[in-house]
């Protein structure tokens, strides 16, 4: 289910003195199976961009195609599109409303007009995907759960629609390291199972470096970098200038290289850094350098 964004601009409150350009002439194609990390400052346009992917926002100019269907066409059923392109907003637990966990997660599938048996199967599957015990929790009020559990119920509410594309807007915001790691591993598992394309808006360079197959950096309503994380993170200086930074290990390698140590700088993770440093320091010890 590829998403094609064609020269999209978006202006909030167009025609008023408060008009604000949020997207400028953005073009982008997201292919099946990708894991796209979307990075940029608050106000860079990333949240606006992703809301175009399921027709929550319409471009002021330009077009958006999902699986070849033009979202800007008046005859397009946006409800059908939204079942395919699932979207988890920031702090999704703030949107819980169901009397029970089951009712809340079932909201999406029911809106899609599914039969009750199918709804139940979907709810069960979705809750299990986020690591929650269906039979133990389904009759609980979602408001009685812990913060991390609420978040997972809310994500399950989107997964229950079985979307082909999953958009997540800062899924770990406000969680502690353990809670974050937990959510991220679930997302990675979903993507790994080959069932969904993932688009994740985040501030964490470390997460993007570790998880995504593609990194899109936005600034002032435009895309400034788009490529594999390994490529993008070679632009240490530029990223730092934009106030975005790179993973700490990438920065470390960059600095070491600057000091004359012959290390590779396209390092993204702890494991890679360890291997590279051991290699170089071994060489150094043997006097080859």
């Amino acid at each position: 289910m590829p998403i094609v964004v064609e020269r999209v601009s978006h202006i909030y409150m167009e025609g008023t003195p408060m008009a604000k350009v949020a997207l400028r002439d953005v073009s982008l194609t997201i292919e099946d199976g990708e894991f796209v990390g979307l990075i940029g400052h608050t106000g860079s346009g990333k949240s606006t961009l992703v809301q175009h992917f399921n027709g929550l926002l319409m471009p002021t100019s330009g077009r958006v195609y999902v699986d070849g269907v033009d979202l800007t066409d008046k005859h397009t059923s946006l409800r059908a599109i939204r079942q395919k392109v699932g979207m988890v907003f920031q702090y999704p637990e703030h949107q819980l409303f169901g009397e029970t966990v089951f009712e809340d997660v079932a909201f999406g599938p029911r809106n899609a007009g599914l039969e009750e048996r199918e709804v139940e199967a979907r709810v069960k599957e979705a809750l299990e995907m986020v690591g929650l015990d269906y039979s133990a929790l389904k009759d609980h009020s979602p408001f009685e759960l812990s913060g991390g559990q609420k978040r997972r119920v809310a994500i399950a509410g989107v997964l229950a629609m079985k979307p082909a594309v999953l958009i997540l807007d800062e899924p770990t915001a406000g969680l502690d390291p353990e809670g974050s790691a937990d959510i991220l591993s679930k997302i990675q598992a979903l993507h790994g199972a080959g069932k969904v394309t993932v688009i994740m808006v985040t501030h964490s360079m470390e997460d993007v470096a570790r998880m995504s197959t593609r990194l899109v950096v936005m600034e002032q309503g435009g895309i400034v970098f788009d490529g594999a994380p390994r490529e993008v993170f070679t632009q240490v200086e530029l990223l730092k200038e934009m106030g975005l930074g790179v993973p700490q290990v990438t920065e470390l390698m960059h600095e070491l290289k600057g000091k004359g140590l012959p290390v590779q700088t396209n390092i993204l993770t702890l494991e890679e850094a360890e291997a590279e440093l051991v290699r170089v320091l071994e060489l150094k010890r043997h006097g080859t350098v």
Binding site: D176, P177, Q248, V249, L252, E255, E274, L281
Partner: peptide, 29 residues
């Protein structure tokens, strides 16, 4: 279940591989 800075974790790994690094490195510099 607490994180440590990436460089701290890296230093720790390098030490366990026999590299002579001091304890408690917390910044890139």
């Amino acid at each position: 279940h607490l994180d440590v800075p990436q460089v701290t974790a890296l230093s720790h790994r390098l030490r366990s591989r026999g590299l002579n690094l001091p304890d408690g490195i917390i910044t890139v510099d």
